[in-house]
Amino acid sequence: MKKTVILGTLLLGLALGGNAQTKTPVGSIGKNDPKAKAILDGVSTKLKSLKSLVANFVLKVEGGNSKVTDSQKGTVYVKGQKYKVLMGDREIISDNKTSWTYSKDVNEVQINNVDQSGQSMTPAKLFTNFYDKDYLYRLIGETTEKGKVLQNIELTPVDKSKNIFKAQVDVDKKAQTIVRMKIFEKNGNKMSYEISSIQPNATVADAMFTFDAKKYPGVEVVDLR
């Protein structure tokens, strides 16, 4: 999966094993589970009510042998449809019209137009009901962890040509927030995300959502628009 797609699925976390799980009946193939929809709608409504959001997360990449091959911490800032992601030596910034991807190790920034077709995934888009059009979803059970009840939802993409063949989202039942997500790729790799902290309605300046080349001496600008 490309970096931009990986980072576009932020604010989600690792689905850990070892918890007792109660299965629920699986609905008809090709149809969405109304119980899962109610949960996802509740999360979407709550997140869209926020003026801004700052979240710290951990990304883990697992190979087909289930061994962790990479682990990185990051932070995402979201305000409306604008966002900024900081992870390792990479920054991804979008003002909802233009996106900038900066790589510190090579001191290069790539500039692109934001895909307005609704096909791409972004941190801001996670706050809408993207799942209604792009995924089929079903509630597969509940797990209990550290005294919290997590509702486990499986999503499968409607577009079967995607490299992702399924994902699992864990939602804190009481707080109505997405806690974790694990993305399963067709090649056997897994991308796992876990939120370590969230600051709702944090103070976030609009200037954060544009790239100022003057602050990056010698940066190579690659304009792909």
Rank of each mutant, 00 (worst) to 15 (best):
E108L: 09
V76P: 00
M181D: 06
V169D: 01
L7G: 03
S196V: 14
T45C: 10
I198K: 05
L7I: 02
G17D: 10
G218E: 01
Q21I: 10
K51H: 05
Y135V: 00
F57V: 02
N56Q: 15
V61Y: 01
Q116Y: 13
D159A: 10
S99V: 08
E62P: 13
K48G: 15
V78A: 01
K35P: 03
I195Q: 01
Q81P: 12
S28T: 15
T22M: 15
K35E: 09
Q110F: 09
D89A: 00
L150C: 01
P25M: 05
N189Y: 09
V109C: 07
I164W: 04
V179D: 05
M208K: 13
I178M: 05
A202P: 05
Q168Y: 11
R225P: 00
V68I: 09
Q116T: 15
D212A: 10
N112V: 09
N152W: 05
F57T: 07
A213E: 08
V5C: 08
K182H: 10
K146I: 08
L10P: 02
Y131H: 03
D115C: 13
T156L: 02
R180G: 01
S28K: 15
A124W: 04
T122N: 06
Q72K: 11
G18L: 15
N129V: 12
S71C: 06
Y135D: 06
I183G: 05
M191N: 01
P25I: 02
R225C: 00
L53G: 04
Q168D: 11
S28H: 15
S49T: 07
K160G: 13
S99L: 06
K182W: 12
S196W: 05
D41H: 00
V109K: 01
T101L: 10
K97C: 06
K37I: 03
T45Q: 15
N113R: 04
M87F: 01
E154W: 13
T69I: 05
A213M: 04
V219P: 00
L126H: 03
S120L: 10
G141R: 06
S117K: 14
E142M: 07
K73T: 12
M1I: 14
K97M: 09
V5H: 05
L16N: 14
Y83E: 04
Q72W: 11
T156C: 14
V221T: 03
Q81N: 14
V158F: 08
T177Q: 03
D223W: 04
A207W: 02
